[in-house]
Design a protein around this nucleic acid. Structure first.
Lengths: 351, 351
DNA sequence: TTTAGCACTCGAGCATAATGAGTGCTAAAT
DNA sequence: ATTTAGCACTCATTATGCTCGAGTGCTAAA
């Protein structure tokens, strides 16, 4: 019986926290006990709510900007809220269908998917949408070609199964003839089409290093092949980040604060940080959420970042996400990012 | 004699305007008559200066934020100032040498030049540096290759004399064999290496359309060649814009004003506008300056834009410039942009 | 034509007070 | 034991009035 009561109480407390967060997210104004009391269907007076709110403040979930103001959630408060809702957040069928339809036209390359997705995230959530490309080494090889640009310099062109194209200028120790280059390209194209670049490259390296019989066509120039492959592998390991909708920040009331503004601009002026942030979480497919001060960088201390990995052929190869002020509709953000990460996965597999 | 006096007077008036502008640009604080009187070496009292300032205000060159404040320049004021100084602004030898030295290392491609230049502009002027790429059709052909990606789809790869690479996916009406593609590439490479792409392409079109004897190698597939050339020409006509140092805006006092801030963010969130702005001025090599309200767009009404064309092999093919608040050191901006546009020209010709 | 001198204007800074939203605490009610 | 009515208290916000001083415009004298 005692246990029962405690659970009741905790649930009520939780409900209060949720109401505070929901309305604060909507209005950007500190929430009063009276407000919460009205929102809770149960007829609890504001005085009771005040007691509960005092406890919530004690526990660090909410805080007062000043004595005679209502409460606003802390990072910890948002965290508790998010941890509670994240498991059972689901996108509405209608929204899901509407979003999926946006991918119908002109989605032929990964680039198309990346751009469309960051656009959709920013439009739907009114915040900056960010998308990390798969590393080129995770793409699938359709074709590789080498062009001799001048003595000892070649241009390697990688065409992926998704029709994205990458090129790398490579300086070699030894000069190669166009015919030799064609031989190498031919060897790779016939034996490795459809494989991931990383896989293809390690495959080639193994074969060449072992001087395997399968690679007799290129035995004479084995060293150069290894040199080429190594150079390309160096370049293809990077994950680029693309974003859109930074301007939505300017519309948020948080933007009144010059200091916050400066930090956000700083953030979006230096590519590296956002890239590092997403890269760190890359291997996992899971949803990941950093709220306010949970972010290690000052630049992000007034922001939250919600990201989720996406798969290509069953492997997690990139992440998509949203960056916005801490006062963010986490439910919507989670459901949208999570859903779109699935869509990105399917689209990538479809093309 | 009368004429002589009037010139004296006008010159004095001009000097007052210049002092107001110089100090306002430095301090961002309205300039008082006392201040100006001290700055002018001549011993004119503040009362006299006040009379002159009243005239300047009458004529629309300066304005008062409020009755008991000093004066700040208007767009017209800046304009008059700029028109007066722009002819005899020259960069100091030392600065010029220092800037030129920055281009020593790792400048091998146009991309390197573009990125270095926008970085230098933003660093030197503490404002956003913008650089418009030459259109690909103005690049010089080192090599062109075609890769057959699948039936009726080919990838065209353009390598420029500066080692920049562009690729375009082209859908054809008719299928072509790899051998045929190689023939076309070969034809172009042997006959047009070193020429500007635009020139090469029109040359090819003429030849092929006339069924000239010089093009007998490719007569069988003339239609396809024309189709390919047309597709590429469509794509290569664009001028991309690159920028850097947007974050410097956040440090200017103008940034305290949320409204200005919003507009500036809007501006940098939509690529098209800046591109259009520079494109419009492209054909001319001249320095171009838009001050405050002279800009047609609201987004730029608190900003000024200083741009200058740069040449490649004697033709103006792109522009570089700076975007900053109206309160900008125009002298420095003009000399830097002008000088760097020359440097860009030489560097492009060198690589 | 210049300038000293002075009245005038107006923003900035500061103190004071009223208002009211919202709280915390206590004592009574359930 | 829990809830709540009631009330004192706090403090941001707004308004008001005040002084200070920077800067002006104008006038009359130099």
């Amino acid at each position: 019986m005692v246990k029962e009561k405690i659970r009741d109480k905790n649930e009520r407390k939780q409900a209060v926290l949720e109401h505070i967060i929901d309305t604060y997210v909507r209005t950007a104004v500190p929430v009063s006990s009276k407000m919460v009391s009205e929102l809770m269907g149960t007829n609890l007076s504001s005085a009771t709510i005040r007691n509960i709110m005092a406890e919530l403040e004690e526990e660090g979930y909410i805080t007062q900007p000043h004595t005679s103001a209502g409460r606003i959630p802390t990072s910890t408060g948002y965290r508790k809220y998010v941890d509670r809702i994240k498991a059972d957040v689901h996108i509405e069928r209608k929204r899901a269908e509407k979003l999926e339809k946006e991918y119908i036209s002109r989605i032929r390359t990964i680039k198309n998917v990346i751009e469309k997705t960051s656009f959709l995230i920013s439009r739907e959530l009114h915040n900056a949408g960010i998308v990390m490309w798969p590393s080129v080494s995770d793409f699938y090889l359709r074709q590789i070609e080498f062009i001799k640009v001048r003595a000892e310099t070649i241009l390697a062109i990688l065409v992926t199964m998704t029709n994205d194209v990458r090129n790398y200028m490579i300086k070699l120790d030894k000069d190669l003839e166009s015919a030799e280059l064609r031989k190498i390209a031919n060897f790779i194209n016939t034996n490795y089409e459809g494989q991931a670049f990383s896989q293809a490259f390690t495959g080639i390296k193994n074969l060449v290093e072992k001087r395997s019989a399968d690679s007799e066509e290129i035995t004479g120039i084995a060293d150069s092949v290894l040199e080429i492959i190594d150079s390309i592998m160096d370049e293809t390991i990077e994950n680029d980040v693309y974003w859109d909708g930074f301007n939505f920040f300017a519309e948020e009331p948080e933007f009144q604060n010059i200091n916050t503004t400066r930090k956000v601009i700083q953030l979006f002026s230096n590519r590296e940080y956002l890239t590092a942030l997403m890269k760190k979480e890359l291997p996992k497919k899971d949803l990941n959420i950093y709220i306010g001060k949970e972010n290690l960088s000052d630049m992000l201390e007034d922001c939250s970042v919600v990201t989720c990995g996406y798969n290509m052929r069953g492997r997690t190869v990139g992440r998509i996400g949203v960056v916005g002020p801490t006062r963010m509709d986490y439910g919507l953000a989670i459901s949208t990012v999570q859903f779109l990460s699935e869509v990105v996965g399917t689209k990538l597999d479809e093309i």
